[in-house]
């Protein structure tokens, strides 16, 4: 059993791990002012900690009014997508050391959705687009008594898109979505993909028709922002391409 990484890690932990970091946060609270503004906070933090830990430190020790969503703190609930140093990420999956802490770390709300307060945006339009693609299994005929059979290969076909946590990092990094909030956006297409390519599902045609709409997949300009943003490592652009191809060939 090898332990080299650990020994290194432990040696590093023995020295004082704390560094001083500036968080530059885009603040907005319409109860106080109609204008958003940047505010700097300095905190002492272990660079191996998460950006979320930094935000908590600020909220808990410096300014209780700082407002953001979070729950699980390890990248599975999708609450805390935000723009960190200009890129969409989950605050709980981004370690301070990985984002150049020598310079101020900028944190702002994701773009394209209305900011409600500080880092909190209105998620309703995002979830509405999701609901509009029929994100549920549709089957015809009688229910079998046991499970429906599915081969491991058929199951694998849509594995990637089942990982989505609906964090909106992709959709809110998409320039098409910024310009036109009517566009379904990558997350909705990812979730349509998850069913279109599920061998058990029988509503692929209907979903494809929905996405054939003027606000559907054809708006995608293949900028790959979404794939870069996805904290679950989903190949979002590829999924969108597969949906486009299915629309042309009607084979899926």
């Amino acid at each position: 059993m090898a332990t080299p990484t650990l020994d290194k890690m432990e040696a590093a932990a023995a020295a004082s791990p704390y560094i001083t970091v500036t968080f530059r946060i885009r603040r907005y609270n319409p109860e106080v002012s109609a204008e958003a503004e940047w505010q700097d906070f300095q905190i002492e933090i272990d660079p191996k900690e998460r950006v979320l830990d930094g935000l908590h430190k600020i909220k808990w020790d410096l300014d209780g009014t700082l407002t953001f969503r979070r729950s699980c703190a390890h990248g599975i609930c999708g609450s805390d997508a935000m723009r960190i140093n200009g890129k969409n990420r989950l605050a709980c999956k981004t370690l301070i050391k990985d984002i150049n802490p020598e310079k101020p770390i900028t944190v702002e709300a994701i773009k394209g959705l209305t900011v409600m307060k500080d880092l909190v945006v209105d998620m309703e339009p995002f979830f509405q687009a999701y609901r509009d693609v029929m994100p549920f299994l549709v089957t015809k005929g009688n229910e079998p008594t046991r499970e429906r059979l599915q081969s491991a290969e058929d199951r694998e076909r849509f594995d990637d898109t089942t990982k989505c946590i609906l964090c909106a990092a992709c959709t809110s990094s998409c320039p098409v979505f910024w310009n036109d909030g009517q566009y379904f956006g990558p997350a909705a297409i990812v979730n349509a993909h998850r069913f279109i390519f599920d061998s058990r599902d029988e509503a692929g045609e209907q979903r494809l028709e929905i996405l054939n709409d003027k606000d559907g997949v054809w708006r995608c300009r293949t900028t790959f922002n979404c794939t870069d943003a996805c904290p679950r490592g989903i190949e979002v652009t590829k999924a969108i391409q597969e949906v486009k191809r299915a629309l042309i060939t009607r084979r899926f």
Binding site: F136, L137, R148, A152, R155, R200
Partner: peptide
Amino acid sequence: EKMGLPFNRT
């Protein structure tokens, strides 16, 4: 499973 859950398969 009938609701659509993608279980791993044998």
